[in-house]
């Protein structure tokens, strides 16, 4: 999967800020017109595209939400682990320093591996991802606050989780990251069955993180709940986008390639 992804442009991991000119290449259809050098065209009557190179190396940190809710369906947490591992390996192959933070349990980061390069470091990260078990209550706001102090400015933060908390509770923590000019990529995981309330009979629903049980007829409530879910997805997207980040919706059973492809291309 990573090999396929490497055909994309590494440059696109950055949003164009703090990039340095490298050289020209002939224009080919599909290149961005924004990168055409019109001065060269005026002087030489040739269409060329400018190419850039990152000024500094890009340190990336992956934050994995391993709270209890991620394990409400096995597929969801497995997808989260797989996504984290793929991202870590991809960044390693791009020779980018990569770190790992695992959030599980309210207000605590269970694991923290600072960003570094190297195969041994990458292997350590992958082992960390594979070893984690989802448990405890979520506390995204605390995690973000805790991790923000450790990130270098202008680094890349990849959040993999369900964001299943009131956006108002964690969105302010993103502001602190934005002020440190941290690039944000949010991978919001969800299980389609849960999002569509796809259950055939009345059930007593409960959160693996604890709390009250709620008897419910899913058939009767499905339309209303789907509206609620759609609204929630929009809230998360808005919260991330307003901090100049990207949010990617990841279904628990979906193929990750298109999502990662968009990630690498810098597409939202």
């Amino acid at each position: 999967m990573v090999a396929g992804l490497q055909q994309g442009s590494r440059r696109s991991l950055r949003l164009g800020q703090d990039m340095e000119f490298a050289d020209y290449k002939p224009y080919t259809p599909g290149d961005s017109l924004r990168d055409l050098d019109w001065k060269v065209y005026g002087r030489s009557d040739r269409l060329v595209v400018r190419r850039y190179q990152a000024e500094t190396e890009m340190a990336a940190t992956i934050l994995l939400d391993a709270s209890g809710d991620l394990a409400s369906t096995p597929e969801k947490f497995q997808q989260a682990q797989l996504l984290c591992a793929t991202l870590a390996w991809f960044l390693h192959t791009e020779r980018e320093p990569v770190g790992l933070a695992i959030g599980a349990g309210e207000g605590a980061l269970q694991n923290w591996i600072p960003p570094r390069s190297g195969a041994a470091h990458a292997s350590r990260i992958l082992h960390g991802i594979a070893a984690v078990k989802a448990h405890g209550k979520a506390g995204l706001s605390d995690w973000l606050t805790g991790i923000g102090d450790r990130l270098r400015p202008r680094s890349l933060l990849l959040i993999v989780g369900d964001f299943a908390e009131e956006p108002g509770s964690w969105s302010k923590a993103l502001d602190a990251l934005a002020r440190r000019r941290v690039d944000l990529r949010a991978f919001q995981l969800y299980d389609r069955r849960e999002a569509e309330l796809d259950f055939a009979q009345p059930l007593r629903f409960f959160s693996p993180e604890g709390g009250d049980r709620l008897p419910l007829d899913p058939i009767a409530q499905r339309p209303l709940f789907q509206q609620e879910v759609a609204h929630f997805f929009e809230e998360v997207d808005e919260a991330v986008r307003s901090r100049k980040g990207h949010r990617y919706l990841v279904e628990a059973r979906a193929d990750l390639v298109p999502i990662l492809s968009r990630f690498i291309r810098g597409a939202p």
């Binding site: 969801k76 299943a164 849960e194 059930l203 007593r204 629903f205 693996p208 709620l214 007829d217 929630f232």
Partner: peptide, 14 residues
């Protein structure tokens, strides 16, 4: 009332 339990990751939305 239903008795069968179902873990659910989006309880806060419910």
């Amino acid at each position: 009332q239903p008795t069968e339990m179902q873990p659910f990751g989006l309880m806060f939305l419910l």
